[in-house]
Design a protein around this nucleic acid. Structure first.
Lengths: 224, 224
DNA sequence: TAGATTGTTAATCGATTAACAATC
DNA sequence: TAGATTGTTAATCGATTAACAATC
């Protein structure tokens, strides 16, 4: 019978979900190696950098193609190039921030997004008072202009930095405007239609998951 | 032969990973229902709210115990109580922010963490100039005092808001100080020892995963 | 050749889901 | 009783991993 985890049909577009999640982790480690001047890496070394085991590294990389050399290892530069291409890391993915309040302003000024390849290309807000102001070199536009703004700046990722009450509306507008991914900082859970194939991360949910783990650790009691 | 997904041994502490990840999603939906005055919910209704299917809801909830009533559904209030207890949501989990730069300040002032049950209880920084300043009612302490600060304020979650170069050091200090979870905003990947059972989320990695999805969508080409 | 390391196989494990008996 | 819905089973699916043949 055919193996359950069969090879990919096409290179870009059919990686196992679990592999996709680990790719950026490998990527970071590889970039560090490249910066250190390392040119070759074994699955074992990369595994240690990424905090997984070597078999998983080899399996994951095999989905990208046979890019290693038996007895030698993988070429760091080539792998950076390949994974970078797959992650879309070579071309930056412009980000639009919805909400120019305290958090929105701070995220706009924060160079972390840009440094990660996600430059803040646009900021929108519903408040006419802040529309037109410049934050970190970007002029705040009105949220009603979102479809136009997203098209103009080719924004692929939307960041929701609104109060909780406005978050779902912001998400709906981002989806309608055509962004492909949403990172939600508002302290509420938002939903996206599941037919648009859009990826979403709720920070509040991440926090709750973190909360679970600290709680479980703290609670030694095993109640019934 | 025994089933692969067997019932839990003790109530708190042995839920399947995948269930834990969905629990906060159910929780949010249930809180909304409770606020609307709804007292009973079926697995089908909850599934729609959470964006999963009804079988998964029932399976997940069955790990918590038999809290439903056949032919009727689940008691919303009771479920909120149970899941809230498991997530540690009833008692807030104090957060310490490392780094009082632009992002650190903004996150400190942002009420989103507090609203999610993660009040900012402490802020530390390495720069003597900012130590002693007050941000959103919290006095910035020196990062060298982190172990004392974490103990005093019972911080369970650490948020890293430093420049990339300082992020790993911040994480190491947080781990040493005894926090249980770390949320890393710095534009770099950090590592934690895997023997401490600590939960970590790198925002940069989340962004890269988001990037992958938008990239894949954009690239219709199926190359070889 | 001998040593090293990949790429792949196949066993195992955990998660998902349809189906349905139990039961309110 | 009839209708509704849970809790559980068992089939299926995808992910993990040890092992090893291939091969540099």
């Amino acid at each position: 019978m055919a193996a359950r985890n069969d090879p990919p049909a096409d290179t870009a577009g059919s990686l196992p979900e679990a592999t996709v999640v680990r790719l950026p982790v490998y990527f970071r480690g590889l970039v560090e190696l490249a910066e250190d001047g390392t040119t070759t890496v074994s699955s074992q070394q990369l595994a240690e950098l990424a905090g997984v085991n070597a078999a998983k590294v080899r399996k994951d990389l095999s989905y990208l193609g046979s890019y290693g050399t038996r007895g030698v290892g993988y070429d760091v530069g080539f792998l950076v190039q390949q994974i970078g291409r797959i992650l879309g890391g070579s071309e930056p993915a412009p980000v639009v921030i919805v909400g120019a309040g305290n958090l929105g302003k701070a995220l706009s000024r924060y160079d972390g997004f840009g440094a990660s390849g996600f430059p803040v290309a646009a900021i929108v807000d519903a408040d006419p008072v802040v529309v037109g102001r410049r934050i970190a070199g970007v002029t705040v536009r009105h949220v009603d202009e979102l479809p136009k703004v997203v098209k103009e700046s080719c924004c692929l990722v939307g960041i929701v930095a609104t109060p909780a009450a406005a978050a779902q509306s912001a998400v709906d507008r981002l989806v309608a405007a055509g962004v492909r991914s949403i990172l939600n900082f508002a302290p509420t859970l938002v939903t996206v239609p599941d037919d648009v194939g859009l990826r979403k991360v709720d920070l509040a949910t991440e926090l709750h998951i973190l909360g679970y783990y600290e709680h479980r650790r703290g609670a030694t009691r095993a109640t019934g």
